[in-house]
Design a protein around this nucleic acid. Structure first.
Length: 229
DNA sequence: GCGACAG
DNA sequence: ATCTTGTCGC
């Protein structure tokens, strides 16, 4: 069905060089380790674009493992950075951080819409935000950015490894959250490991393709969009 | 040189 | 991400 593949306008080489260096620097701060205590509150982060030059970032906070919504906030602002594959965080993270400041609750983990470690330089938006806030984070993406993987089994809960084609390193896991639906890509961002990331994503799944944190953030973005005008 | 390319 | 019609299945 994908007869056409998206075309991405060439990005400014100088800008790409700067951002790449910034990601390498941030990676020095990244730590992937087992999560010590079970989280009590988990947040879901997602952004949408009402117009081509404005961004709407939403953050929802749910209890864990009950997954009851306890808070939802958003921040609406301008966007200057264009979308460049591999540098999504520089376009969305700033506004997400502004939304985070409005939060009254202190979540224990952040589930971000996009990749974490499963990134060319292991610094996807989930890792980017986790490092900046120095908080445990994981990424849940709907499409692969880099890496190869076999198809996970049909049964919900099935996993398949996402590996770097060159090094063979495990960079994420493909998780089948729903029967007969394309799987999601889970990877750690900061302060937690792959096993924890996948387990959390699965324990947050309630019959939909997307885990509740990310799914609800996306859902509320639609509601807040009306509130804006 | 030829593809691939989160949201 | 966003736009956008019809269609399939529970």
């Amino acid at each position: 069905m994908a007869y056409y593949r998206p075309y991405h306008p060439p990005a400014d080489p100088a800008l790409v060089r700067t951002l790449t260096q910034q990601q390498h620097d941030m990676r020095q701060q990244q730590r992937l380790e087992p999560l010590t205590a079970s989280p009590k509150l988990i947040a879901g982060l997602d952004s949408s674009f009402p117009t081509e030059d404005t961004i709407l970032s939403v953050i929802v906070v749910l209890t864990f493992p009950e997954l009851q919504l306890v808070e939802k906030v958003y921040n609406y602002g301008p966007v200057d950075m264009p979308y460049v594959p591999g540098f999504l965080s520089f376009r969305e993270a700033p506004n997400l951080l502004l939304a985070y400041e409005k939060l009254q609750h202190r979540p224990d983990v952040l589930m971000v819409d996009g990749h974490g470690y499963a990134h060319p330089r292991r610094m996807g938006i989930a890792a980017h935000i986790g490092v900046l806030l120095d908080m445990p984070s994981l990424g849940v993406a709907k499409q692969v950015l880099t890496g190869q993987h076999p198809e996970p089994e049909a049964a919900p809960g099935s996993r398949a490894p996402l590996t770097d084609k060159k090094t063979g390193e495990l960079i994420g896991e493909v998780l089948r959250t729903k029967d007969r639906v394309k799987p999601v890509f889970v990877s750690p961002g900061h302060r937690l490991d792959q096993a924890t990331a996948t387990e959390l994503a699965w324990r947050c799944t309630r019959g939909y393709k997307l885990p509740e944190p990310t799914r609800l953030a996306d859902h509320w973005a639609e509601q807040f969009k009306k509130e804006i005008r």
